[in-house]
Design a protein around this nucleic acid. Structure first.
Lengths: 212, 212
DNA sequence: TTCTTACTGTAGTAATCACTACGGTAATGA
DNA sequence: TCATTACCGTAGTGATTACTACAGTAAGAA
């Protein structure tokens, strides 16, 4: 039919640009309206390309949204990595605070990814979209990342406590994002309190803060 | 046209039952598929009533979903109130812990309300649905409720700190709900850690735990 | 030049969407 | 008994949905 992206042949410049334009349009619309709310027609109009082009680049709507998730996540990870490379001289606790602050800023700048992801997570449709599975995969990875991170910060704690703190950090981050979207709270303040709360929980788990 | 629910006349028994059946069906479907995903046809099939009946009871889809939010919220509040009436002999801190546990149980038993509400919150459509505004109103009320509650538990803290803790509690609750839906974490454990974390943050704000 | 591949444009498909026009029916108040 | 009201059933409306068939065009390979 119309598959096989690029075999040996050199890619056409126009084609690559079109693919990006389609993904940009789809990411923006899906980030605002969710899976069902993203119509091919709307993506077509926003990208300036006909529906047939969208279906040439992507098998169907399901794979289009999945591709949006994939690209957004890799962009996200790369941005975080760039930020992390900057400060290597910090102590674990300082790293934790600055890491939280950076995540908050990241969320403010690119809200579409998490918004779409959370919408996909909440929806329960009979045939689960590929995009939802992809986002779930990014969550598992993020949680693993957090466990490693918190394991280094709260060295004396056991695995179960680290797990609890990781889950709470991710949950708090999601919740604060939603609060910022709806109640318009200051997300930077929220993340600061979250960091303080997680540290407080760690202390009550038996962790001793290095500065005391 | 077809408005004016009940003027002076006695309500017809069948009509009341139908209205409930429609709301039940709509609540279930909207709780799983969101605003766009809830089709009148699906509500019609699930409730066993034709579309014309739905449009007799509700002006349009927008008001139907709004009515779903209204009813779910009042059910929610009533259930919470019934629980709160049971234990009046507890200390504020005990009340807080037990309140958190009860909220967690409430979320497990009736997940449709919060799931729909969060989906509505995240969505950004050109013409904001009435249901979204209604849910936002419940959020404002919940936050006020939390402020009063935490103000009593952490008596020595100032308004700004209480505000931060309230926002964090709500955000943590939302986030844990999402985590339970997607990663399948134990929500009771999560709420216990959340309570511990909020108390930890309160301590770091200068609050002194009564049991120490 | 000619053939192949990569992509775009036009014009459709059947299905589903929210919503309505309207007649039928049964219970109620007078 | 009779008109009124409350609600249900049938059968549609035009718009929008995801998706496709297919011809056209332009670039690179031979």
């Amino acid at each position: 039919m119309a598959q096989s992206a690029s075999r040996q042949r050199k890619t056409r410049a126009n084609g690559v640009a079109s693919r990006i334009a389609i993904l940009d349009a789809a990411a923006h619309i899906a980030g605002e309206r969710g899976y069902e709310g993203t119509s091919i027609n709307a993506v077509s109009e926003r990208s300036g390309l006909p529906a047939s082009s969208i279906y040439w680049h992507f098998k169907n709507k399901d794979e289009l949204i999945a591709a949006v998730i994939d690209r957004s996540y890799s962009d996200w990870i790369e941005a975080l990595r760039r930020l992390a490379d900057q400060d290597t001289t910090l102590s674990p606790v300082e790293m934790y605070s600055s890491g939280m602050r950076q995540s908050a800023e990241q969320l403010i700048q690119f809200p579409d990814f998490l918004r779409l992801g959370l919408m996909l997570t909440l929806e329960r449709r009979p045939s689960e979209p590929t995009a939802r599975q992809r986002f779930q995969a990014t969550r598992v990875e993020t949680l693993a990342r957090l466990r490693r991170y918190l394991g280094r910060v709260f060295e004396s704690l056991g695995e179960a406590e680290i797990e609890q703190l990781s889950v709470l950090t991710l949950a708090g981050s999601d919740g604060l994002f939603i609060a910022a979207e709806s109640e318009g709270i200051d997300i930077a303040d929220g993340f600061e309190t979250l960091a303080r709360a997680v540290m407080g929980a760690a202390v009550s788990f038996g962790w001793v803060h290095p500065n005391s």
